[in-house]
Simulated assay, not measured.
Amino acid sequence: MRVSVIQMNQGSNKAANLDQARCLIEAAVAADRPGLVTLPETWTNLGGGRDSRMTAAEVLPPEGSGEPGGPAYELLRGLARAHGIHVHGGSMIEAGGDKLFNTTVVFDPAGTEIARYRKIHLFDITGPDGTGYRESALYGAGDRLVTFEAGGITFGCSICYDIRFAEEYLALRRLGAEAIFVPSNFTLQTGKDHWEVLLRARAIESQCWILAAASWGQYEERGAARSVYGHSLVADPWGHVVAKVSDGTGWATARIDPAVTARVRRDMPVLQHRDARRVDFDRDARPAAP
């Protein structure tokens, strides 16, 4: 299966973001004929503050209901149907009661929603430049892993900050994942040092393809300019970067080859070695009882 990772420069204007996503997906489909496309994290809104995020949020229809959703949800569904492709919607802002959620939805070529994932690990950190990020102030955390099948390949879902938690990727591998999505808004400060290193490490550890569509460029947050790193990429199960977007908006396309996955896992059977010699590292790392 050919997969295109889409790189956007979205802002706080939701209508403009939807139009940008449509244009980029249609251009990628016309040029590269992928069977699946994937968008960045919160492609419907980046910046503008709390009110902007609340305005961009959509109430998602019940899973499996087939009921209509909001403008972003229906755009993804319509693009899947129009082009006969799977569409992994990066993540969008989901209205969920007291909290918002950072949520992925996936559609098959018939426009049927086949997967939904809420980001588990929330970005509560202080960046190298002293800028604070407190995702949990506005968003709730997801509580379950999600996989789905497309084109005979099992895909796993994750979002951005999840990449720093290797155990999530090993758990997805145990659930059968052969490729894992990482839609992201990586900050420029952390991205330039950590982005590619982390993605390649998760690919090597899990022996999965890593599909990372990212946001690039500047956006405004409560009157201050912030920057995100971009460099969307696809890494194979050996950790090689096989397709990559540089600066600017655009896309990169790679073919997910199950034969490569099978060969890497056969020749270096790390999951079997883990299972054969399993040690409870969490237990052994805990201080002894007094």
Rank of each mutant, 00 (worst) to 15 (best):
I163W: 05
D267Y: 06
L75V: 13
P237N: 01
C157V: 02
M92N: 05
L39A: 06
S246G: 15
E220S: 04
R50A: 15
E26T: 00
V106L: 08
Y219F: 15
G84E: 09
L175W: 00
M92F: 13
P61V: 07
V3H: 04
D162Y: 03
Y117D: 06
N13Y: 11
A225Y: 08
G191V: 06
D32I: 07
A141L: 06
L79R: 05
H194E: 14
L18Q: 06
G49P: 12
R134I: 15
R33P: 12
R255S: 07
Q207H: 15
S227R: 08
R118S: 09
L39V: 01
W209R: 13
A21T: 12
E220V: 10
G239H: 04
T187Q: 07
H273G: 14
R265L: 12
S215F: 15
P269M: 03
S136E: 10
V245P: 11
R53I: 05
L36R: 08
W238D: 12
D124K: 03
F101A: 06
N102E: 08
E58A: 08
L18I: 10
G176E: 10
P258F: 00
T55K: 13
V3R: 08
A57Q: 01
G130I: 01
F281D: 00
D19H: 12
Y219W: 11
P128N: 06
S4R: 04
Q7N: 01
L76P: 09
A259P: 00
H231S: 06
G248I: 05
L60H: 06
T126C: 05
L122S: 09
D143I: 07
A166E: 11
N185C: 14
L75A: 12
A203L: 03
I6V: 14
T253P: 14
A214F: 03
H86T: 13
H88N: 14
